[in-house]
Write a protein that binds this DNA or RNA. Structure first.
Lengths: 151, 151
DNA sequence: TATTGTTATACTCTATAACTATA
DNA sequence: TATAGTTATAGAGTATAACAATA
């Protein structure tokens, strides 16, 4: 088989695995666990850095959604006590989003739910898992722009 | 590292790869290419079998959504000429969804878009790709219920 | 009476446009 | 004048409830 087809096959299997495991339902479960209303707000929380605050605008760009929606998302995050808006010292138009301690805890909980592997993966042997990890790590190293958010 | 953690790591990498590659945008692109209004209708089309017709109810159960929404999705698929509703011979309440020739072509187009691998995967060597494929195939063999839809 | 599919309707998620405050 | 964020509003996507036809 041509190399191109091998690559396509590999990705096809990833897609099917992912859709088959219903990661979408995982996302909803994670929302329920941390008490957030919808996946958007959770994605926003996960997109924020624990120590380096981002402006609303930056977050909107990263999430590729409208700024007005970010307002709504951050409202729910603030209501849950997971982030604080603080006016920037250098530009008073800008609001910086600080993740609170509770926010960090919530992220950790979400991370645990989202990265729970499907049973099929756990059935691999230890050495197979090591191989798989090594290959996936290599793929991620090759990724041009690193993932927008880190789990 | 414990085996459990290796499995979690592997899955975490899959999740990040998948989200990083913006498979969601892929889905929208595939919709545009085959002229369907939204991901829901494309997912419905891809969930249908080319030869074995399914009832609306069955499709609703598989897609885990309300029957009334299936009505809307199938409306758009029928408008695009990709499926036909045919009343069942054995139960006249039931409508069976037949994929048309144009529908099969559309599925093939969508498949091509959705399985296009991210560049990072294409950078692996041929032997690494073979290894990755073999491991992923093994994972999919272990999957308890086979994926709802096959790309 | 129970079930399949449809219609009418309402709710949730997300975007566009108009607005306020600051630069 | 241009930019950051908010508010008001509208649109898309999805569900719930009531309904018609068939079982």
């Amino acid at each position: 088989m041509a190399k191109k087809d091998l690559a396509r096959d590999a990705w096809q299997q990833v897609v099917m695995l992912f859709l088959g495991d219903e990661q979408q339902e995982r996302f909803h479960e994670a929302c329920a666990r941390v008490g957030l209303p919808h996946p958007g707000s959770l994605k926003a929380l996960v997109s924020l850095d624990d120590v380096e605050p981002k402006s609303m605008r930056t977050l909107a760009a990263e999430m590729r959604c409208d700024a007005s929606y970010i307002t709504a998302l951050v409202d729910s995050l603030e209501k849950a006590g997971y982030v604080e808006r603080r006016v920037s010292d250098t530009d008073r138009r800008v609001k910086l989003l600080h993740v609170t301690t509770a926010g960090r805890r919530a992220k950790q909980t979400a991370r645990t739910v989202l990265t729970t592997p499907p049973v099929a993966i756990e059935k691999l042997t230890e050495s197979e898992l090591r191989q798989l990890n090594a290959l996936l790590a290599k793929v991620r190293e090759n990724t041009p722009e690193p993932t927008r958010f880190t789990l």
